[in-house]
């Protein structure tokens, strides 16, 4: 619960961003992040909210732990926490349907 998950911003509409979490697209809220974000930025997300823009030079280092964890099958608690964090972002179906 205190492990946020990084994702790449695909698009922004008002206070909501569509974010790609390792291939899963979800909506993340931007009300509590402290700097503007746009498509291509990476953000750290916790329980459905972006809490930090990850500096460009740090992205690769930040992603590697998650890439390793997401290869784990269900039942690994770190992997489950990361998947739970992705679940915490709202389904993106609504926004993507509106776009189509």
């Amino acid at each position: 619960m205190c492990l946020g998950v990084p994702g790449k911003v695909v698009s922004v509409e008002g206070q909501v961003a569509l974010v790609d979490f390792f291939g899963v697209r979800r909506e993340t809220r931007l009300d509590v992040i402290d700097e503007p974000v746009g498509p291509g930025d990476y953000v750290l997300n916790h329980v459905g909210f972006a809490i930090r823009k990850i500096p460009a030079e740090d992205i690769r280092e930040t992603l590697s732990l998650y890439e390793l964890l997401l290869r784990e099958a269900g039942g690994d608690m770190m992997a489950d926490d990361v998947r739970g964090e992705i679940e915490a972002a709202r389904g993106a179906a609504r926004q993507e349907a509106a776009r189509a």
Partner: peptide, 15 residues
């Protein structure tokens, strides 16, 4: 439940 990190999300929905 949760520490201050998680409480921020609760605060945001209350607002």
């Amino acid at each position: 439940s949760g520490f201050e990190t998680t409480a921020v999300a609760t605060a945001a929905v209350v607002l």
